[in-house]
Simulated scan of single mutants.
Amino acid sequence: FCMCPGGYVVNASSEHGETCVNGMSYSGRDGENSNSAIVVNVTPEDYGSDHPLAGMKFQRRWEKAAYEAGQGAVPVQLFGDYRRDIPTEKLGGVKPQIKGKYRLTSLKCCLPEYIKDAIIEGVVSFDKRMPGYSSDDAVLSGIEARTSSPVRMIRGDELRCEGTCIYPCGEGAGYAGGITSSAVDGMKVAEAIASRFSNEAITDGTQENING
């Protein structure tokens, strides 16, 4: 997910006392290393509450933990140390490319145990296609807890909020989890809007004006 060739990890935190990272590449994509996010599925059952904003509380809990682990900087750990569950004290053969300060530490406290295990499984699996991906010296930095919205705006069969002209769509509204899926959802909503006004025009007898 979110592969950034020749890219950088950036501190994208937006709230005091919380750390959230993201990835980016300059147009030349000529940085020393590449980075990519590893995404683990999180469901409402993991939030521990049925409150409408439970997802946001879950997100904030772990971003606060990441802030504490890095003492305000981006927490960094080598993959080999992550697997062995020991804090990283020195870097190996990979130089971190991070915009902003970073701190060598342990990421264990920044994620639930099941997510930690799933990340290890995913990285090892990727290594079968891209040898070296699961190198002990690979650098992990965290956390990116905003790959998709933790809140979903409810919409009906016509893809709009009931009784309104509001059409929630894309990542922020909780209907996508990336650039491509957001674009597809946006197209679906655009078609729904066009269909609605086309049908209303036919009902009002103004189809000729639209076509003309």
Results as ranks from 00 to 15, higher is better:
residue 169 C to A: 09
residue 16 H to L: 14
residue 23 G to D: 02
residue 60 R to D: 06
residue 111 L to C: 01
residue 195 S to V: 04
residue 50 D to E: 15
residue 132 G to E: 12
residue 190 A to I: 02
residue 210 I to V: 12
residue 167 Y to C: 06
residue 132 G to H: 09
residue 190 A to E: 00
residue 108 K to P: 06
residue 25 S to I: 04
residue 163 G to Y: 08
residue 73 A to C: 12
residue 155 R to F: 12
residue 14 S to T: 10
residue 63 E to I: 02
residue 134 S to A: 15
residue 24 M to L: 08
residue 47 Y to Q: 13
residue 125 S to P: 10
residue 198 S to I: 02
residue 37 A to N: 08
residue 212 G to P: 05
residue 88 T to C: 02
residue 209 N to Q: 00
residue 51 H to Q: 11
residue 161 C to Y: 11
residue 68 E to L: 11
residue 66 A to G: 13
residue 4 C to Y: 01
residue 175 Y to F: 13
residue 165 C to I: 08
residue 152 R to C: 07
residue 105 T to P: 04
residue 128 K to E: 13
residue 29 R to Y: 13
residue 56 M to F: 07
residue 7 G to I: 06
residue 192 A to Y: 00
residue 126 F to A: 15
residue 88 T to Q: 00
residue 121 E to N: 13
residue 31 G to H: 11
residue 146 R to S: 12
residue 158 E to D: 15
residue 184 V to A: 06
residue 78 L to N: 04
residue 55 G to N: 03
residue 56 M to N: 01
residue 188 K to G: 07
residue 175 Y to S: 11
residue 126 F to D: 14
residue 58 F to K: 07
residue 63 E to C: 11
residue 187 M to A: 07
residue 209 N to D: 08
residue 162 E to M: 09
residue 194 A to L: 02
residue 75 P to W: 09
residue 96 P to L: 00
residue 39 V to W: 07
residue 144 E to M: 15
residue 6 G to W: 04
residue 43 T to E: 14
residue 187 M to E: 12
residue 129 R to K: 06
residue 3 M to H: 08
residue 154 I to T: 14
residue 5 P to V: 09
residue 194 A to G: 00
residue 123 V to F: 05
residue 67 Y to M: 03
residue 112 P to A: 04
residue 102 Y to H: 12
residue 116 K to I: 14
residue 182 S to V: 09
